[in-house]
Design a protein around this nucleic acid. Structure first.
Length: 630
DNA sequence: TCAAGTATAAACAGAT
DNA sequence: CATCTGTTTATACTTG
């Protein structure tokens, strides 16, 4: 019964190694690992993605300077805040529609001419496009290789064979599952349009077709998309599944936790065989799969673009702050030291090559935070990342503002909130009118507010109880209806020693906060919470005016004020919805990406049901509060 | 190296 | 008896 803990996704190896494990080892066994490690969703080789993207959209030349190979999902997640992701989704959709329309127009224009003739014209156009794309592609690859070599020479990158695909492994989670899911699902609708067009003799995909297998799989029947058991080659991408796959044993990147990881699917499959069957039947090479794949590519592309922008900004900032990006070592070294283990990998995978700034781990991490476009609150880093300060808690309530802002996100996305249990509990309690909650109510708050806490219940509930008992700041009070828990604010404040801002360790925290998967997420959360306050003021985060400003503002946002931003019932404040809140603070400097951050929320909300269902069902059904879906 | 703070796991006891 | 609630202990990790 408590075995659900076996599905814990967050835990990573460290905790399994400890001595405790007489029992835990058993539960750690098979299933569990799938969570963090085996959760290799949608592992598309970045290179492939790149190729595909090139076909899909006219990628700016600047893109050639980026190395998708080096972008880890975590980075993506960190790069984009929930609202951003939402906006991104909107964009994706718009893009798709545009594409469709565009193609449609192309098709229509010569509509009067004979079908065949029209086709030829179109194909000519395509031919030219293909050429251009291919050239660009080659260029890009050359640049990439060059840069990789450079990095390797500098010892900045430690490329390991087979790592190429790893970074993408949890793209779904990294990107906010909700968004992606919705996106993918929406694709189905869009796809119908495509289909309609195809019937006119035009295959949408040909629009961008060229030599890559993606288009091939979809467009060119001549290419034998062998019914791979996994189907990935034919549908997802022409990935070089070799390396990564082997690393993950016989597992399939689209299979984990006994369920299909195909975007928007989550069908339960008892074993690989069943999964393969499912894959072949449900995700065969058809319009829908293709469209979904395409969306995925665009998502990735957007992220890459975003990363490029942010990197640039980072460089400017560092330059401004005299961090001399031109001298990577200056602040590179210590950082690498700080989290060498986890970083070595992430650097090699996650750092966009060719970027102007130093390929340091520090660079990457910082970027997302100030990322201003918008709503990038610290939340953007959640997932694995800590980026939270406990001390800052003291001055501002990151949780409150963060939740106020990204409430929907946390509700829908199975992402671990970057807060400590203590701060979450406290927040839950303070949120209520009478500032007290029963244990069960606290549980409910957790499950209501965070999709993440809809599973692994035994684990986190135990943690909650543990925290309640352990921390003096939580006071148990006998009530009419039993015992309730309250917060002793004084105690709470006591336990967080004021400290550092801008210290070197801070930077380290930021790095580890990026937690590209190597570190235990929870530890990171805890640690980060303890260190980074300044970077976390959501209101400021959005404001891309600069880091220094952020620091100044941190103290602004105090508990009471922020707590009020969240409705006392635990749901997002109706009066000041996350997106509205976001709008207030955002300085839209990058309209392209942010302007619509208000809409996505609804989009996300609509997805809610789809999302957490299959996978979480087993856990949710048992404790999901009735008010779960509001 | 140690202390502090946090997470996770688990044993245990009392209440329901 | 099972489950929930609450306490306590142990271990691990990271940072200062």
């Amino acid at each position: 019964m408590m075995v659900e803990s076996a599905t814990e996704t967050i835990r990573t190896t460290p905790s399994n190694q400890n001595g405790v494990s007489s029992l835990s080892s058993q539960s750690d066994g098979g299933g569990r690992e799938g969570g963090s490690n085996g959760d290799t969703n949608g592992e598309i080789s970045p290179v492939d993605l790149l190729h595909l993207q090139q076909q899909q959209v006219c990628v700016p030349v600047s893109m050639a300077m980026m190395t998708p190979q080096m972008i880890t999902p975590q980075q993506m997640q960190q790069i984009l805040s929930p609202p951003q992701l939402q906006a991104l989704l909107q964009q994706q959709q718009a893009l798709m529609l545009q594409q469709v329309t565009h193609t449609h127009t192309l098709t229509r224009a010569p509509h009067k001419s004979p079908h065949t003739e029209h086709k030829m014209i179109f194909q000519q156009q395509l031919g030219n496009k293909q050429l251009a794309f291919q050239q660009q592609l080659i260029q890009m690859q050359q640049l990439q290789q060059q840069h990789i070599l450079n990095l390797q020479r500098q010892g900045l990158v430690n490329l390991q064979p087979g790592q190429g695909a790893v970074p993408i492994q949890s793209l779904q989670q990294a990107m906010c599952p909700t968004d992606l899911q919705q996106l993918w699902k929406d694709v189905a609708g869009i796809q119908s349009t495509e289909e309609a067009m195809k019937h006119e003799g035009l295959d949408l995909t040909t629009n961008s077709s060229n030599t890559t297998s993606y288009s091939a799989s979809k467009v060119s029947p001549q290419i034998p998309h062998h019914p791979l058991p996994n189907g990935q080659n034919s549908v997802h991408t022409p990935k070089r599944d070799s390396s990564n796959h082997e690393e993950h044993t016989a597992s399939h990147p689209l299979y984990g936790h006994g369920e299909c990881k195909w975007p928007g699917c989550e069908a339960l499959c008892e074993d690989m065989g069943q999964f393969i069957k499912h894959l072949n039947s449900e995700h065969a090479l058809d319009d829908r799969s293709t469209a979904q794949c395409r969306v995925q590519m665009q998502v990735v592309q957007q992220l890459e673009i975003q990363l490029a922008k942010e990197s640039e900004r980072l460089q400017a900032m560092m330059t401004h702050l005299h961090m001399r990006p031109s001298e990577p070592k200056s602040f590179n070294q210590p950082l690498n030291l700080a989290s060498s283990v986890s970083l070595s990998k992430r650097e090699s995978e996650g750092f966009p090559e060719g970027l102007p700034h130093p390929p340091t781990s520090a660079a990457t991490p910082i970027t997302p935070m100030r990322q201003g476009p918008s709503v990038i609150s610290s939340s953007s880093l959640h997932g694995v990342g800590p980026i939270r300060r406990r001390n800052s808690d003291k001055f501002c309530t990151p949780i409150a503002s963060e939740l106020a802002q990204n409430c929907e996100f946390y509700k829908n996305a199975d992402v671990r909130p970057p807060f400590t249990y203590a701060s979450l509990i406290r927040h839950a309690i303070l949120e209520t009118p009478d500032r007290q909650l029963t244990l069960n109510e606290i549980y409910n708050w957790f499950t209501r507010m965070f999709a993440y806490f809809r599973r692994n219940t035994a684990t986190w509930k135990n943690a909650v109880r543990h925290n309640l008992s352990l921390h003096k700041c939580f006071v148990r009070v006998e009530n009419v209806k039993g015992a309730v828990w309250t917060v002793d604010e004084v105690e709470y404040q006591k336990r967080r020693p004021p400290k550092m801002t801008g210290s070197p360790t801070l930077v380290k925290n930021m790095i580890s906060g990026l937690g590209f998967g190597s570190l235990n997420a929870s530890y990171q959360a805890a640690l980060a919470e303890s260190s980074l306050g300044l970077l976390n003021s959501p209101t400021l985060m959005n404001n891309s005016t600069g880091a220094s400003l952020n620091m100044l503002h941190v103290g602004h946002d105090d508990v009471s004020s922020t707590v009020e931003q969240v409705n006392s019932n635990g749901s997002c404040s109706p009066g000041l919805s996350p997106q509205q809140y976001g709008h207030q603070v955002h300085v839209k400097e990058e309209p392209a990406e942010m302007e619509e951050d208000s809409r996505p929320v609804s989009l996300m909300a609509s997805v809610t049901q789809n999302l957490s269902m299959p996978g979480d069902e087993r856990d949710m059904d048992e404790e999901l509060p009735t008010e779960e879906l509001e």
